[in-house]
Amino acid sequence: MERVSFKNNTWDVAGHLYFPENFDDSKQYPSIVCVHPGSSVKEQTAGLYARQLAENRFIALAFDASFQGESGGEPRYLEDPATRVEDIRCAIDYLTTLSFIDNERIGAMGVCAGGGYAANAAISEKRFKAIATVIGTNASRAFREANPVETLHAVAQQRTAEANGTEKLINNWIPNSAEEAEKLGLQELDLLEAIDYYRTPRGQHPNSCNKLLFTSMSKLIMFDAFHLAEYFLTQPLLVIVGDKVGGFGSYRDGFDLYNKAASTNKKMHIVKGANHYDLYDQPQATQEALAQLIPFFREHL
Rank of each mutant, 00 (worst) to 15 (best):
S39W: 11
A14F: 15
R127F: 04
V149R: 14
I131C: 02
R89Q: 10
W11H: 15
C112F: 08
D93G: 03
E43K: 03
E145W: 09
T45C: 06
K129R: 06
V134S: 04
A119S: 06
T45V: 12
I131F: 02
G116C: 05
A146E: 14
K42Y: 01
P75K: 15
Y117E: 03
C112Q: 02
I135E: 11
Q44D: 04
Y29E: 00
N103E: 07
A91F: 14
L53W: 00
E125L: 13
G116H: 07
N138T: 02
G15C: 06
R105G: 01
S99C: 02
E70V: 12
K126S: 10
N56S: 11
A113Y: 15
E104V: 00
S26Q: 12
I32V: 07
V33R: 13
A65K: 14
A119F: 00
V13C: 13
A122N: 02
T151L: 07
G107S: 01
F63E: 07
M109S: 01
C90V: 02
P75A: 13
I59R: 09
T137D: 01
N22G: 08
S39T: 11
V85P: 14
D25R: 13
E74S: 13
T137W: 06
D64E: 08
H16D: 11
I59T: 06
L48N: 03
Q52G: 05
T96G: 11
D25C: 08
E79P: 08
A139H: 07
Q52N: 08
S124C: 02
V149W: 01
G107A: 07
A119K: 02
E79G: 06
G114C: 04
T133E: 00
A65Y: 10
V149A: 08
I123W: 11
V35S: 05
S66Q: 14
L48H: 10
I92V: 14
S99H: 13
S26A: 03
G136K: 01
P148H: 04
A14D: 11
A118T: 09
S71L: 07
S40E: 12
D12Q: 14
S40P: 10
P37N: 04
F143G: 12
K129S: 05
H36A: 13
L152E: 09
G110M: 03
H16S: 10
A60Y: 00
T10S: 15
I106T: 01
D80S: 12
E43W: 00
V85Q: 05
Y117W: 12
Y77W: 15
I131L: 09
P37S: 09
P20V: 07
R76K: 15
V149E: 14
D64P: 15
P37A: 08
L95R: 14
V111W: 02
A46L: 10
F100N: 06
A65R: 11
A154N: 09
F100A: 05
Y77A: 10
G107F: 01
Q44R: 03
V85S: 04
A132F: 01
W11E: 15
D64F: 14
A54Q: 05
D87G: 07
E125M: 10
A50K: 10
A132T: 01
S99G: 09
Y77N: 09
A139N: 10
R51N: 05
S31G: 13
T133W: 00
L78H: 00
D87F: 13
R144C: 08
T137C: 04
G107Q: 01
A146C: 10
A14Y: 15
N147H: 12
A62P: 03
D12K: 09
T45Y: 00
A142Y: 14
H36R: 15
K42C: 06
A60F: 01
R76H: 04
Y29R: 09
K126I: 05
